[in-house]
C-alpha cells in the first residue's frame, strides 16, 4: 500500500486528496451530529408519548414509529430529496431544490434524523416501561401528579437504563450517514469513492476510510462511557465499565 497519492494536488478545487478526505470527515460529522440532535429530541418526545395512557397522544406516536422504522433508510432518503419537492406547492418546491442553501445536506439530515428518531423512541419507551410499575404507584401515592412522576422518576431512571442501547444508535447514525452519498452529499464514503476514481488507489483509500470510521465510533463509545459513568445510579445500573 502506498499512501503517497494523498499529498498529490487533487484534480479540481486546488487542495490535495488529503483535503478531500478531511472535507469528507467534516460532512460525515455534520450530517451525523445534526441528524442525532433531531433523532434524540423527536425520539424522546415520541418515546414518552408512546408510554402515556392517552390514546390521542399514543396513536400518532405509534403510527410514526411504525412508518419510519419499517421503510428502508435509502428509500426515505430518496423520498425527502426527490419526491417531497414535487408534491409540495410549486414555489416551496423550487425553494427546496434551488433556493435553500445545501439542499442535499439538509435532506440527508432530516431523512436520517427522522428515521433514527423512530428507533430512539423505541429505546426510550422500553427504558420507561422497564421501571417496575410499583414505583409509579408509590410516587402517585405520595401525592405527585403524573407529569411530576415523569419528571422526577420515569425519565431520569428510564434514560439511564437505555444509555447502552442509545450508544449503539449514536454509533449507527455515523455509519448510516454514508447513505447520504446517494443524494449527492460528499461525505467520507463519497469522497473515498471519488478519490478512488481519480487515483485508482481503491484499496488504500477505502482502508483509510475504514480506519477513520473506526476512530470516530471509538471516540463516540468512549464519550458515551464517560456519560454513563457520570450518570450511573450506584448499585443499580450503568457501571460504565
Amino acid at each position: 500500500m502506498d499512501f503517497g497519492f494523498l499529498s498529490q494536488p487533487a484534480f479540481s478545487g486546488g487542495g490535495t486528496y488529503f483535503d478531500w478526505v478531511l472535507s469528507g470527515i467534516k460532512w460525515t460529522m455534520l450530517v451525523s451530529i445534526c441528524a442525532w440532535v433531531i433523532a434524540f429530541t423527536l425520539g424522546s418526545v415520541l418515546g414518552v408519548l408512546r408510554t402515556t395512557k392517552l390514546w390521542w397522544l399514543k396513536g400518532p406516536a405509534t403510527a410514526y414509529v411504525e412508518l419510519f422504522r419499517n421503510v428502508p433508510l435509502l428509500v426515505q432518503m430518496f423520498i425527502w430529496y426527490f419526491v417531497v419537492p414535487e408534491i409540495v406547492p410549486k414555489t416551496l418546491g423550487m425553494w427546496l431544490k434551488q433556493g435553500m442553501p445545501m439542499p442535499e445536506f439538509w435532506s440527508a439530515v432530516f431523512a436520517l434524523g427522522f428515521y433514527t428518531a423512530s428507533r430512539v423512541a423505541e429505546q426510550v419507551r422500553s427504558g420507561i416501561q422497564s421501571i417496575p410499575v410499583g414505583q409509579t404507584h408509590a410516587a402517585l401515592a405520595t401525592g405527585l401528579t403524573m407529569p411530576q412522576v415523569y419528571r422526577h422518576l420515569l425519565l431520569p431512571m428510564g434514560y439511564r437504563i437505555v444509555i447502552p442501547p442509545l450508544t449503539s444508535e449514536f454509533l449507527t447514525i455515523f455509519k448510516n450517514s454514508s447513505v447520504a452519498l446517494t443524494i449527492g452529499v460528499l461525505e467520507l464514503t463519497a469522497q473515498a469513492r471519488t478519490i478512488s476514481e481519480y487515483t485508482f488507489r481503491t484499496f488504500e483509500i477505502f482502508t483509510l476510510a475504514t480506519v477513520v470510521y473506526v476512530l470516530i465510533t471509538m471516540a463516540v463509545t468512549v464519550l458515551m462511557q464517560l456519560v454513563e459513568r457520570r450518570l450511573r445510579v450506584p448499585g443499580f445500573i450503568g457501571t460504565g465499565k
Binding site: 431544490k97 460528499l186 463519497a190
Partner: peptide
C-alpha cells in the same frame, strides 16, 4: 456541482429543476 450515480438520475435532476 452535485454528483449523481447514473445518467438517468442526472437527467432527473435537470428535469425536476434541482
Amino acid at each position: 456541482f452535485i454528483p449523481s450515480k447514473d445518467h438517468a438520475e442526472s437527467f432527473l435532476a435537470v428535469e425536476t429543476g434541482r
